[in-house]
């Protein structure tokens, strides 16, 4: 498939994630939209990895493997991030009995 199709698909998913962060007030939904944006970036990395592998010469077949390894490390960081973020959301729910992010403006003033 042409690389433009993959780029545009990843852009659409990324922008849906951005819109979700902007229009929702539920902290967990916002967190899920961030996961959606990370996945769009992952898809783009894998597509670029295959593109560079096809463009390389035949004697060095491992060209472009860095893209897929970066996807692996992004998944590692995302798993750590989710555990910490959900712990913070649970703590916030225990204190204010709501996960509305508008309750988080207490640090103002």
């Amino acid at each position: 498939m042409p690389i433009q199709y993959y780029i545009i698909l990843a852009l659409v998913l990324f922008c849906i994630g951005i819109i979700g962060v902007l229009i929702r007030r539920n902290a967990i939904i916002i967190f899920m939209c961030i996961e959606l944006m990370l996945n769009a970036a992952n898809l783009l990395l894998v597509a670029f990895s295959k593109m560079h592998n096809a463009a390389a010469t035949a004697n060095n077949t491992n060209v472009g493997i860095e893209g897929q390894l970066f996807v692996f490390f992004i998944m590692v960081v995302a798993a750590a991030e989710v555990s910490i973020g959900l712990a913070i959301i649970v703590m916030m729910f225990r204190n204010v009995h709501s996960i509305d992010i508008n309750f988080l403006n207490r640090l103002k003033n």
Binding site: M1, S49, K50, N53, A54, A55, N62
Partner: peptide, 18 residues
């Protein structure tokens, strides 16, 4: 322009190579 992401072939995604 004109670059393609190769589908169905290529072995850089296999567990052995990675």
């Amino acid at each position: 322009k004109g670059k393609i992401a190769v589908t169905k072939t290529g072995d850089i995604g296999l567990i052995k190579v990675l």
